[in-house]
Design a protein around this nucleic acid. Structure first.
Length: 479
RNA sequence: GGCUCCAUGGUCAAGCGGUUAAGACAUCGCCCUUUCACGGCGGUAACGGGAGUUCAAUUCUCCCUGGAGUCACCA
């Protein structure tokens, strides 16, 4: 019995990595690392029609960004290659022929038309094992004549298959429910049904992790393992990630790709952390965890059996937790591209912007809207000055600004601290509440009801010249 | 439709015969406060339904209901 844990992530190069696939990948990785095992990347490109140029590179880059590192793969030979299925074509052929000899499969020469004629009134088509009765002579004759053919799996007509899934427990499926699926297509390429078994066995995969859509077809694969006399792997089927109660999160839904979230301004660590929690819960109920912590805490016991609805709101919250812990430099490295998009470029202090934004950023794409006041300033409605809690109305606001303008004109040390002192003193000297004057100035220099910082912080960032300009402009609005 | 699987608040979820049924997000209120955030405190909110088994069911069994998956020369 092979005791080494070897898991694999076997995506098809058909485009961006879907969040659901990434979670399967993550779990396979976590499980392998938790058990000091090996994590393998295998490319399942047996369907040349669905192949998308550049998709393999996307797989590599997604794994890299996620922090998931494979031990073996097309680019890292571990002695079990090739790791790309299209390069293993001869291997499948050899094993398929062997399976035919063992009676586990047979050649089928049925035409598409005949297959279609098998469709019943419900639109369900079940192959009738027509070619199973062909004699050895007939088969070799047709083969020699070059008649197009496939190789089908020979599934018993009756009986029940049983296996243990580590998440779902005992699964029983009657063979009658299963069909003689195609193992080798007419183009000579294997289907998933065959390739995954051959490869998992040859690559010594100990634990197969995959979506639970394979739960009821796994008996077919077990049958192949059994026929060859190979040891069956352990199965860990995973429940789906849902878009809502009744729809699976799908590629067609659009923004369910890892890269989409990265583009939206999510941190890869937060995405990984969040999806780890979708369908799995650590024993100690931790929420924010690094990849290493995830590895330490991962346990199949904590995997749930029901689907989980993807909640972007919670992922945003988790992202904000990561943002909050960033240093100013780290934050700036992510925020710079958004700052550069605004007038802030070459004009305002990024470090100061970072300091006010760091506790107000859930995802980085929130930034433009928050700093829009830097770019946009002009006509606004004076009712913005009204606020009952701050005990301020348009008249009070006007008074505040009139009082503050000359004082601010004389401020030489234009810093947050100094401005705060100056305006506080001014308020006190004139019997005004600090809140009133701060509110008035803040609105007057931003034209906004809420801003990512207080009056003096924003004044500091805008600079003396711009502030005075805006205050004068605002004062004019009262006339 | 057949088969397989699933079912705790709006969401993620803990629970694995006896609990005041955790926690997190969201939401609401209060505090802090230079608006908004952050932070702190508190509130609202759940075992789908029905039979059993048991001294005792959220927990075990069955049925119903609801939902998901699957039934390809796609994976």
């Amino acid at each position: 019995m092979n005791t080494e844990v070897r898991t694999r992530f076997a995506p098809s190069p058909t485009g961006f990595i879907h969040i659901g696939n990434l979670r399967t990948c993550l779990y396979a990785y976590l499980f392998a690392k938790k058990n000091a095992g090996t994590f393998i990347l295998r490319i399942e490109d047996t369907d040349q029609e669905r192949y998308v140029e550049g998709a393999v590179e996307l797989i590599y880059s997604t794994l890299k960004k996620s922090g998931i590192e494979h031990d073996e793969g097309p680019d890292k030979d571990g002695g079990y290659g090739p790791y790309v299925q299209s390069e293993r074509k001869p291997i499948y052929k050899e094993y398929a022929e062997k399976l035919v000899e063992l009676g586990g499969a047979y050649y089928c020469f049925c035409t598409k038309e005949r297959l279609e004629s098998l469709t019943d009134e419900n639109g369900v088509r079940t192959y009738d094992k027509h070619c199973l009765s062909l004699s050895a002579e007939e088969v070799s004759e047709k083969l020699a004549a070059g008649v197009p053919h496939v190789i089908r799996q020979n599934i018993p007509r009756e009986g029940t298959s049983t296996y243990e899934d580590m998440i779902f427990g005992t699964i029983n499926v009657d063979y009658a429910e299963l069909e003689d699926n195609v193992l080798i297509k007419s183009d000579g390429m294997p289907t998933y049904n065959f390739a995954n078994v051959v490869d998992d066995h040859l690559m010594k995969i100990s634990h197969v992790m995959r979506g639970m859509e394979y739960l009821s077809s796994t008996p077919k694969y077990n049958l192949i393992y059994d026929t060859f006399g190979w040891e069956r792997p352990r199965y860990i089927h995973l429940p789906p990630i849902m878009r809502d109660a009744t729809h699976k999160l799908s590629k067609r839904f659009g923004d369910a790709n890892f890269d989409d979230f990265i583009k939206k301004g999510f941190l890869s660590e937060a995405i990984v952390n969040y999806i780890a929690l979708l369908g799995w819960c650590p024993k100690d109920n931790s929420e924010k965890m690094t990849l290493d912590e995830l590895i330490q805490k991962f346990d199949t016991d904590g995997i749930s059996r029901s689907g989980s609805i993807f909640d972007e709101v919670k992922m945003r919250w988790l992202n904000s937790q990561y943002v909050k812990e960033m240093s100013v430099d780290e934050y700036m490295s992510h925020a710079r591209q958004y700052f550069d998009l605004s007038v802030a470029k070459n004009k305002y202090d990024y470090e100061k912007l970072t300091k006010i934004l760091i506790s107000r950023t859930e995802i980085f794409s929130d930034i433009p809207e928050k700093i829009a006041f830097l770019d946009e300033f002009g006509e606004y409605d004076l009712t913005l000055f009204e606020n009952k809690k701050a005990k301020i109305d348009v008249n009070v606001a006007k008074t505040c600004i009139e009082l503050a303008l000359p004082v601010l004109q004389n401020v030489n040390v234009w810093t947050n601290e100094n401005l705060y002192e100056t305006l506080s003193t001014l308020a006190e000297a004139n019997g005004l509440k600090k809140t009133q004057i701060f509110w008035a100035i803040r609105v007057a220099i931003t034209a906004r009801e809420s801003t990512p910082g207080g009056a003096t912080e924003l004044a500091d960032i805008l600079g003396k010249e711009e502030c005075l300009k805006r205050l004068k402009f605002s004062l004019n609005l009262f006339k």
